[in-house]
Design a binder for these strands. Sequence first.
DNA 1: TGAAATATCGGGAGCGTTCCCGATTGTAAA
DNA 2: TTTACAATCGGGAACGCTCCCGATATTTCA
Lengths: 342, 342
Amino acid sequence: MKNKNIDIYTIADKAGVSKSTVSRVLNNKEDVSARTRKKVLEVINELKYRPNSSAKGLASQRTKTVGLVVSEITNPFFSMFVKGAEDKAMEENYNIMLANSNWVVEEELKCIRMFEEGRVDGILMISGGGSDLLNNYLNNLANKDTPLIVVDRKLDNEEIPKVNVNNIAAAFKGTRYLIELGHEKIAFVRGDDVAASAASVDRVRGYREALQKFNIENEIIEPGFFDREEAYQATEKILSSHKDITAIFYASDMMAVGGLKALDKAGLKVPDDVSVLGFDDIELASIIEPALSTLKQPRYQMGYLGMEKLINKLEGKPKEAYAEDVIFELELIERESTRAIK
Amino acid sequence: MKNKNIDIYTIADKAGVSKSTVSRVLNNKEDVSARTRKKVLEVINELKYRPNSSAKGLASQRTKTVGLVVSEITNPFFSMFVKGAEDKAMEENYNIMLANSNWVVEEELKCIRMFEEGRVDGILMISGGGSDLLNNYLNNLANKDTPLIVVDRKLDNEEIPKVNVNNIAAAFKGTRYLIELGHEKIAFVRGDDVAASAASVDRVRGYREALQKFNIENEIIEPGFFDREEAYQATEKILSSHKDITAIFYASDMMAVGGLKALDKAGLKVPDDVSVLGFDDIELASIIEPALSTLKQPRYQMGYLGMEKLINKLEGKPKEAYAEDVIFELELIERESTRAIK
DNA sequence: TGAAATATCGGGAGCGTTCCCGATTGTAAA
DNA sequence: TTTACAATCGGGAACGCTCCCGATATTTCA
């Protein structure tokens, strides 16, 4: 049934050279004459030979694949991140091993452990929960020999290169924007519970700092857990206890969409009666009616850059090529859901 | 720096057994006494040993990983598919190697070739283009020894198990639904060019067949290339040449969203003036205003089932467990964008 | 022309497993 | 007690590659 695999020896025989030479042309080494290289290449093509990557991995101790763990591939934030990472990996001829943690720490751990079985030269991780268990594990990993790059996640290990987003500044910028538009009653619908997401905490902080800076006393914060439905309810709650609200800042576009619905149901017009500001700039933000003003996260770039750093590290590039942390500042995108107060 | 890898021998020494025995407990073989198994397990835990999967792959000729190629991970249709596939793979302790083809055939080929390098036990593919080049290649693959399962793609190779969607019936159902609502002037905005997507062709066919069945002569078909912008323009075109249109059926929800915008701009109300029917049932369909009536594709199930079949095949399960093709029938979801004609 | 330097190649060991076969021990039946 | 058989284990070869070292062929320069 399964005919004998053609291996490097088969090629060597047919080309009249040794396996070493075949290996050399396979890896574009210098020590081969043009003539023999050509001949070997011909045989390779003729026999449709494909090097066995397990053997290669075993012999070279490198697999040319990296592990990618995300919380929820279905979420546009993450899928765009994956695309960026994938593009860069493809460029450099690296493979990607994908793992989806579904937001649960145990699965995240399971993914990483799988990756540790030498299948993967390094790991790129994004967001996810922030349990001590996991963080400890990650710290350990870094001290061993699996290179790791972490995106959008708080970790106080200096050894682990990070690419982050300046959530504090972004939330500050968004809030200030609303204030400069003349709003004074500004609610903030935050994301997840404190422990689970550092990003969420930082955004709350940015909101607070802006209020303080501009001497606005009345802070109104309601949890929305990065969920549309929850944000809907949060909005209703805000509306009922603060009739005079004129702007709501949501920590994600998805939540803003939920908010829009609640506002509509309450008979409030956006942006005439209340301004709505989102966060993320997912595709939906420009599709929805009214189009959402929002803080744009460079999702694709985060993936691309994260992967670039990881590969640089794997390829033994100088430290500057990966070790330095990067922090993205977010751009404010003005669309139709916000306007100056009359 | 990098301390010597702990391998099966290290464990064997420390546990006072041979490497074969360690291998046996690693693979849950029978021929080990409870006592030695326990001891070996202890040592493994103590040393945090992780088997090297390259070596394992080389020796066993199996990698326990499958390749997954999708056209565009960012597209909700595909990301949900990936999630389904990923879930099943995780359940069975398989790894997933992800490749994103960006809709271009050459990249699709490149992905498959990468997978051929023994990294992967089998391949799961979805949609994508339909070039002869690729189809030939796939046929070859199947005749060789890389198991392949194909989802939502036309391929006339009986050896390749397929999971498909009954696009003809679905488009027929959608069109009939519109007709039964009293519509007679029904336009269809189709997807891609004929060559590129079999699904698109089938949907056109279903639309046509329904019109014929109910003796409606005036078929109106405009290309929208599965793109929001294109669908916007297609809609404008339809509107200008067919003032009396009362319903438009889009071959994807994304296109329907583009259509909604065009309709709005033209001052037409949905569903009062014209009914809009989508296809896919992506999340957006229920978010948008008005919520889209649509044909629901079982995206998650397609991924899950495809992966299940693939793994069944890899695990040497009996033929019934994977060889039989499956065809999903689509459910019509009624929401707000369609209504009976007055 | 000869020696030294260089380009080109081959062979062997090793990467960390699995798997087969045979050895050893223990146990039950005769 | 002897024999047969099962349970348990160890050793060696193989998987297909890389990498180092040394051998040979070719060129270069004095």
